[in-house]
């Protein structure tokens, strides 16, 4: 004769429930972590070093001031400087091999907006928004890191703070970013 314990009070059931909850919560946590972790780059480009020796952002990301996309540096842009340097470490050798084979370096873009958001760098640069405002303190990063909470509220927040109420009509208009 089994003890008359209701099913919800059995230990095995309770342990299973806890386990399932843990897996769900943990899985969600890991998933969120991975979306926020910087992706693996073909060359772990040290932004901090390049910024440290005085390279301007727009030297490599040339399109920012004139177009929608800042762009990623071409192989020859890297090689322009690095062919004068001794390939001291593995990364520099990688650069050299890309340049010798005339291959493009498959950089993985990090700061990407979804397809339905039409972001344009040029007006932002014209308005004097610094790169760090959105891309974080690149001077302290090696590879570029995705910035958290780049959502619509964040855009609107900044648009509101930086503009007059008249301009905010345009800057909060759906058609400014979505079409």
């Amino acid at each position: 004769m089994k003890p008359n314990v209701p099913w919800w009070q059995r230990g095995s059931i309770r342990i299973s429930i806890v386990l399932v909850l843990l897996i769900l919560v943990g899985g969600a946590g890991v998933g969120i972590y991975y979306t926020q972790a910087p992706p693996e780059q073909p060359i772990p480009f040290p932004h901090n070093f390049h910024v440290g020796i005085g390279a301007e952002c727009m030297y490599c990301h040339t399109g920012a001031a004139t177009g929608p996309s800042a762009g990623l540096p071409t192989t020859n842009k890297c090689w322009g400087c690095h062919q004068q340097l001794e390939p001291r470490n593995e990364n520099l050798k990688l650069v050299a091999s890309f340049a010798e084979n005339e291959e493009s370096i498959p950089w993985v873009p990090v700061a990407l907006q979804p397809d339905f958001v039409k972001f344009n760098h040029q007006p932002h640069i014209t308005a004097g928004v610094s790169c760090e405002t959105c891309h974080g303190d690149v001077a302290s990063m090696t590879v570029a890191e995705p910035q958290p909470r780049h959502n619509m509220g964040w855009c609107l927040d900044c648009h509101q703070k930086m503009s007059t109420p008249e301009d905010f009509v345009r800057l909060s208009d759906c058609a400014t970013c979505h079409y």
Binding site: P114, R170, D173, C174, A175, H178, Y179
Partner: peptide
């Protein structure tokens, strides 16, 4: 959901696909 919404700036009807 305001997916079909008036654009105050352009004075046209905007369809915000993602909304």
């Amino acid at each position: 959901t305001f997916a079909s919404v008036h654009s105050q700036e352009e004075q046209i009807n905007v369809q915000v696909y993602n909304r």
